[in-house]
Design a protein around this nucleic acid. Structure first.
Lengths: 222, 222
DNA sequence: CGATTGTTCTTCGTATACAATACGTCGTCA
DNA sequence: TGACGACGTATTGTATACGAAGAACAATCG
């Protein structure tokens, strides 16, 4: 579980391994390191301009997060999310995101809701500007923010990992179902803002279900 | 995500870092390394008779799993599961284990069910023999086996991590509610064996709910 | 022509060495 | 006597070196 806390005290030294991990994740999600690609430690070390040790440590975490598969004596390869993987991930998301929405609805402060609506507004602008990349970022930001509001670090950590993988898959298929999904997001934020946990949970479930269907559709075409 | 596969081909070399990780987890769960204890790399390296590198890599994974907290330039300390942590974990388990039970019911082969019943039988014997430690192990084995049968590696990996923490907490409070929980387990296996996903899910939810209540009770007393 | 074996090369696994930093302690000064 | 500052120690962060084990490839033999 990652706390994502900015380390309250003076330690803003951000270790090299964390930078490597972030770069690695980004490289994989963005497609720079396509599925099946071999990731040798030396190569990564050279790519990032560091020694092998930080790379090794980052790879272990990346493995724990499901981004790479490490074969003993063979090295690491970028994981290959299959249609089955997508199905599995959404099966879990369908259970966790409604929970997150419920908890968020029960705990959200007015400030939280304001913050969520701000993201929604930015997303509307980005959508009008056809900036799909930005829309995707805001999509993530919204969900991550809801997870944070839920107040359950375990839930947040797990769902975040799942979410990153979903992003990855969407990036791979180069499809974004953003256009109409924001209607659902607006309903979701409204539900959270109302403080009605039951309603928020229902809306979230519908939302994930729609996303799941869309994902499977694109995956099926891929 | 760990696949838990015994590596089908000749690679049974089980890396040192994995052994260290297992020993570390065990040490933490068993209470040998109590919450808040500082875990310096040198100390662990000496404890396990290895160099610092395997220890470091194991610590990163342990951090990702939530067993330790790593402060930059300060080192690792054993995490301190609070009452809130227990609450958070069970909130997630309540969503995931019913899902696992449903999937297991839908996918279980007769062989799977036989295997589950074998665990149940062993647990009955261990309970009669008052071997609480063994009962705890079988408890874990049963749940892990159900997760495996579910056929969803993501679900299995996540739930496994949650389960380890629950074990940890139970170990800390030195309480086991084993006695009557096995009645629930029998019902759960029956439901899975029947192939009725809906029923299995319901039974699992009740089971986790009861476990959650018991956990909170002991945690409250602690 | 195919299979098998030997060689070579790549890559991982482990250990050791060095640098940077945070914390504790001791001394000094007000 | 209390507080502030400098120094020493301990621990992490990073780099490098060396050994071992697989895999790929090629050559040779059937």
């Amino acid at each position: 579980m990652d706390t994502d806390q900015p380390a309250k005290i003076g330690a803003q030294h951000l270790p090299l391994r964390d930078q490597v991990l972030a770069a690695l994740r980004k490289g994989i999600i963005s497609g720079d390191y396509p599925p099946g690609e071999r990731l040798t430690e030396d190569r990564l070390a050279e790519d990032f301009g560091v020694s092998r040790n930080p790379v090794r440590e980052a790879l272990r975490v990346a493995e724990a997060e499901g981004f790479v598969v490490i074969l003993p004596r063979r090295g690491a390869v970028v994981a290959s999310p299959s249609s089955a993987t997508i199905h599995d991930i959404f099966a879990v998301r369908e259970r966790l995101e409604p929970l997150a929405a419920r908890l968020a609805a029960e705990r959200a402060t007015p400030g939280d809701v304001t913050s969520l609506r701000a993201v929604l507004e930015q997303a509307r602008l980005a959508t009008e500007a056809q900036d799909l990349r930005r829309v995707g970022e805001l999509n993530s930001a919204l969900h991550l923010q809801i997870l944070g509001i839920s107040g359950n670090p375990w839930l947040a950590s797990i769902a975040k990992a799942l979410y990153l993988h979903v992003q990855w898959v969407f990036q791979m298929t180069a499809k974004v179902r953003a256009p109409h999904s924001w209607d659902e997001h607006i309903k979701l934020v409204d539900a959270i803002g109302s403080g009605d946990g039951e309603l928020a949970e229902t809306v979230a479930l519908e939302h994930v279900g729609a996303a799941s269907a869309a994902a499977h559709e694109t995956a099926g075409r891929a």
